[in-house]
């Protein structure tokens, strides 16, 4: 019995030591499950969030990236507007260069009303193959990815946005329609991996 337990432990360690970068999960595939702690110390489980919300928006964000910071107000406002419709926005900071304390202070400074999680060792960024900040993933009612990409097409000036891609995706989902543009791209800061 003791030998069996040793083997199980060994296999568990081997699984944890798997290559850091997984393939990017495709649209329509299951969103990888994870558990993290928020910057104020509260546990967060994606599985629990999916159970209590119609849709979940994961946003890989940063404290020092000008592209991510260009969206602070938009993220705050969209999160507040959509949470009333059953959409939970979640910020994830995977940068090894930005501490829990700095991330917490940044969230407070910008009035983020949504959970902001710290991703030590960028494990969740690796699960999702997230490369930049900001980069968002929308998880549908069935736990599958329905949108991946940018918030919109203008990080510099919200008044000049011509393609509000995340909003379009959420509005389509809430209206019971399919998302027409499921993958988008934008410039952003590389996630500083450990």
């Amino acid at each position: 019995m003791k030998t069996l337990r040793s083997w199980v432990a060994l296999l568990a360690v081997a699984a944890l030591a798997a290559p850091a970068l997984a393939d990017a999960p495709a649209i329509g595939s299951a969103a990888p499950a994870f558990e993290l702690k928020s910057v104020d110390g509260k546990p967060f489980s994606l599985a629990d969030a999916e159970k209590s919300n119609a849709y979940v928006v994961l946003m890989f964000i940063a404290t020092q990236c000008p592209y991510s910071n260009g969206y602070n107000d938009r993220m705050r406002d969209m999160a507040a507007a959509y949470v009333k419709k059953g959409v939970l926005f979640v910020g994830i900071n995977s940068n090894s260069t930005e501490s829990v304390e700095e991330t917490a202070a940044h969230a407070k400074q910008h009035g983020f009303g949504f959970p902001v999680l710290k991703d030590p060792g960028n494990k969740v960024a690796d699960l999702y193959d997230a490369r930049r900040t900001p980069e968002v993933y929308v998880i549908g009612k069935d736990g599958k990815l329905v949108y991946h990409g940018r918030i919109d097409d203008n990080s510099n000036d919200a008044s000049k946005v011509t393609s509000p891609d995340l909003k379009n995706a959420l509005d389509a989902l809430l209206a019971g329609q399919t998302v027409s543009k499921t993958e988008t791209k934008a410039f952003g800061c590389t996630i500083k991996r450990a």
Binding site: R131, R150, K185, A186, F187, G188, T190
Partner: peptide, 16 residues
């Protein structure tokens, strides 16, 4: 920007 990014490489996500 998406058009520019994809013209450089379809696998590029836009990270710098």
């Amino acid at each position: 920007d998406q058009d520019f990014i994809e013209s450089v490489d379809p696998k590029w996500g836009g990270e710098l």
